[in-house]
Computed example of a mutant assay.
Amino acid sequence: MPRRTVAKLATVSAVITASVLAVAPSAHADLVTHCIGTGGAVTVPNDLYVPAGESCALTGTTITGNVTVAAGGNLVVTGGNVSGEVRVAADGYLDATDTTIAGQVVLAAGGYGAFLRDARTGNVTVRPKGAATIDSFLFVEQSTIVGTVNAGAGEVRLDSGTQVERNLSTTGTYYTDVHDSFVDGALSVLNSATGSVVCGSAVRGLATFAGNLGAVQLGPNGTLDSCASGGYWGRDVSITNTTGGVTVDDNIIDGRLTVTSNNPAAQVAANNRIRGGVTGDQASATTTARSARSAAVADREDAGEQRAQARRTSATQEAAAAGAARL
């Protein structure tokens, strides 16, 4: 599956507007601030709206309501605080660094992506792709998800000390990888197109991997990605109906490991500590790290991050240029 190319950003031609849009769903009118361009350490006393195809870059901004990013829009927020939720439409992009979002983050079907770094949010949802032509991504680094992560499309990677305080579940993603992170609930990865990697991480609840293509790798010495160590699993781990290979290396499993109906049979290294034993078919584990990864997954480590960086840079530069134009 070829990597999705970076979508072209719409040209931003105005600064953050001073205008507000009044809407009246009931007897009381709600104010909505439209954001085009750049904004600083101010408080938005209502909802924030990024219009379709526009870019908004905020630094130190407090938003007391909800945020909507319309189709093709971009929101880059640094050091911000959102009291409500953030919803991102098709081909929309959210980039939040050192930012707190009290409510949920929802990426619509065909949403371009969401990148969270040093952030704190409520539940995070990536809608299934459906008939959309864009496949999404969710990249999370050094962040806390106060709730669940539920993804139905695209590339999903949690990294660098990220914490999910409830469950992490994905179905039909391109891949789901967890590096150096903590899931305080169950982990479920189903029907991933190029498999899943979990390295240097801890999962407190049940872990289920089923119907994945392109392999499942728990710990180092697998075919998909490079990593230094395995992980800790607080309950049973089940890996079933997987094609492309299963490797389980350098893990502590405080439960039973089930490896059934995998093709080829799972390789379970002798250095694992598995309290409840192993059920299913096993092949002899190799002791040599594999360096040749398949072409389909060779760029999984940085492909999504490169797309996020490209869109972040473009959105920020366009918004800044629009703001400078009025000086």
Rank of each mutant, 00 (worst) to 15 (best):
V124N: 01
A295K: 08
A296L: 14
T243D: 10
V69H: 03
H179W: 11
H28F: 08
R312Q: 14
T121M: 04
A266W: 07
T78M: 12
P25T: 03
K8G: 00
T260G: 00
A270V: 07
S19V: 12
G304I: 05
G79V: 02
P45H: 10
A102H: 12
G172R: 09
A41H: 12
S196K: 09
G73P: 10
L158P: 08
T162H: 06
D302Y: 13
T100R: 15
T170Q: 01
A109L: 01
R293A: 13
F139I: 13
A292Y: 09
R204L: 15
R256W: 00
S291R: 10
P128L: 02
T288F: 01
V140Q: 01
D91Q: 14
A289V: 09
S83T: 08
N191W: 10
V268D: 05
N150M: 08
T43G: 05
R4P: 03
D225W: 11
R3P: 09
A202Q: 14
G214D: 09
V86K: 08
G80N: 01
T133S: 15
A322H: 02
T173V: 09
E318T: 05
R4W: 03
F209A: 04
S226F: 13
V237G: 06
G255H: 09
M1L: 11
A109P: 11
V86H: 05
G205M: 03
D98R: 12
N167W: 00
A193V: 12
T144H: 05
V32N: 04
L21E: 08
S19W: 06
G72H: 01
T33I: 01
A132V: 02
P220F: 02
R127G: 00
T162P: 10
V178H: 07
E155C: 01
A52R: 12
Q317D: 12
S188I: 09
S160A: 14
R235K: 15
A70Y: 03
A289P: 06
N272S: 05
T11M: 06
L187G: 06
A131Y: 07
Q282D: 00
S238I: 07
T148L: 03
